[in-house]
């Protein structure tokens, strides 16, 4: 039994959710980490301090700079041979690569794992989290993506381990990265924030989200949104919480002007404490809240913001 975690990073920093995936991996067996990218030695160096890793591999090549699935899965196809399990974080990076790798090594994917029962038996949500399936994997190599909110972060220590260099490159002529539109934010990252303030269609416009952002900034919270608010163009797509967006489980989730479609609940109902502000007392969001406030959000939110210290 040998487990490989494929690190998610941006060639500079390790994406924090990789630490949750490493925790899941260590429940299965001795865990090694692969950092694959371009000019990403600093990522491997910081990862080498993560507790309990047996080995770190670094494959640094310009062909992997933009994490194109074709390139990375092609490299992994041969590299996978030595492992019983390969784990990815269940995010845009992992979802783009893990299933393609599966096809190349004739394995069935086990996506969005929330619990590890033994080395081949896993629990995962289906139907937007309205049912939980226990699955047994019969693939020769078990390829999993991990729901980060279900596993804690592995700690880092002062001791670092050696980095094994791999010098394999791969270039494809089929796909090419052109660029990206990424809005930098000072706020904490949505999926790992302690507090999330989320807005829905009830906000009425992108401009009105400012009252929520004020509250979020006072609380040091991340901003989230329902699908309806993103579809309406109020806020960017990467704010979406739900079945097909991001899954969050903060200590405190404040849902404002969100009615609570099952698809939205799927993304936030594992939060420790849920608060909803909605003027419609029949809104389904109130079925999952710890504290509900039935009031006009434009009156309530500024008042909360003013009175919270």
């Amino acid at each position: 039994m040998k487990v490989l975690v494929v690190a998610d990073h941006n060639n500079k920093d390790l994406i924090k959710s990789t630490l949750n995936t490493i925790t899941a991996a260590k429940k299965i067996g001795p865990t090694e980490l692969l950092v694959i990218g371009n000019d990403c030695k600093t990522v491997a160096e910081s990862a080498s301090k993560v507790s309990g890793l047996e080995k770190i591999y670094l494959n640094d090549d310009v062909g992997f700079e933009n994490f194109l699935s074709e390139n990375i899965s092609d490299f992994l196809k041969d590299f996978a041979e030595g492992f019983s399990h390969i784990l990815f974080t269940n995010n845009a990076f992992g979802k783009n690569i893990a299933p393609r790798l599966c096809a190349l090594v004739d394995a069935m994917i086990v996506p969005d794992v929330i619990e590890i029962l033994d080395s081949t038996t896993f629990k995962r949500p289906i139907y937007a989290g309205n049912a939980i399936a226990t699955c047994k994997s019969h693939s020769k190599i078990n390829i999993l993506t991990i729901r980060t909110t279900s596993f804690s972060e592995t700690e880092t220590s002062d001791i670092s381990i050696e980095i094994d260099m791999i010098n394999k490159n791969f270039k494809n002529e089929k796909s090419k990265y052109i660029g990206s539109d990424i809005e930098k934010s000072e706020r904490p990252e949505l999926t790992s924030a302690d507090i999330v303030v989320s807005g829905g269609r009830g906000l009425g416009s992108g401009e009105n989200f400012k009252i929520l952002e004020k509250l979020a900034d006072k609380l040091g919270a991340a901003m989230g949104a329902s699908r309806a608010a993103v579809d309406a163009g109020f806020v960017p797509n990467d704010w979406q919480v739900g079945q097909t967006g991001k899954i969050v489980a903060p200590n405190l989730y404040i849902a404002v002007g969100i009615s609570g479609a099952i698809q939205h609940l799927a993304g936030m109902k594992d939060s420790k404490v849920i608060v909803a502000v909605n003027k419609d007392e029949e809104a389904p969001i109130f079925t999952v809240t710890d504290y509900g406030l039935v009031e006009d959000l434009f009156k309530a939110v500024p008042e909360i913001e003013k009175n919270i210290n």
């Binding site: 038996t121 049912a131 399936a133 226990t134 699955c135 019969h138 504290y291 009175n307």
Partner: peptide
């Protein structure tokens, strides 16, 4: 031949019903 066998399907754990607070002050 399926390589991922479904052993069982269960209900997720339910959240306990919360309360409706009367005011912003009570909420805070």
């Amino acid at each position: 031949n399926q390589k991922l066998e479904i052993l069982k399907v269960e209900e997720p754990s339910k959240r306990d019903a919360g309360i409706i607070v009367k005011s912003v002050d009570e909420l805070i």
